[in-house]
Design a protein around this nucleic acid. Sequence first.
DNA 1: GGGAAGATGTTCT
DNA 2: GAACATCTTCCCT
Length: 201
Amino acid sequence: MKPPEGTVAPKKSFFTRDTMEVAKDLLGHFLYVEKEGQRLGGRIVETEAYLYRNDPACHAARGLTERNRSMFKAGGIAYIYFVYGAHHCLNFVAGPEDEGTAVLIRAIEPVEGIEDMRRRRPKAKRHEDIANGPGKLTIAFGLTKEDDGTDLLKGHIRVFLDREMIGKRPKIVITTRIGINHGADKKLRYYIADHPCVSRK
DNA sequence: GGGAAGATGTTCT
DNA sequence: GAACATCTTCCCT
């Protein structure tokens, strides 16, 4: 996939850094998915960090299992899992190999292939409701656990950096994570201040 | 506009 | 058998 105009592809070293830094640095940049010749794209506006140490909410906290296998690979691949019998969630694995740490992508502002996303998300009345939640965005982008383990530098799921945003982060709000019971006091959720596509204030 | 609860199936104890 | 990184609907204010 060629980077869209005005963007550049990050190197692998972008993902193998500290998870919290990756989670913050992703804000304002783009997620692209190419399937069946269709290209879908959106700006990442909300993320959460799941750490490899002292974080009971992280799927990797209890060791390697069949489901979380991808998390233990080196940063730069997708970890996609199924929850609540109904939804998939997209993560980017971060850090070096065997740490089991990742960034959950919680919300996106659609920018390309919007009609295609709307077809999959008929319930979304407003533009900002198309992908303003982790389950919603995987529906909009057509991602399932079949896509788990995809290489973010070579595969059909990509990250592209907005040239104008490199080195200057947007204004970021930091809060506790959403929808978890263990480790709920940790402030590891990040979103772009005042952005309409954020899942919750 | 917001809280409560049901749906759903996979994973792990 | 319980828990679960959620979404939607329904009912209340």
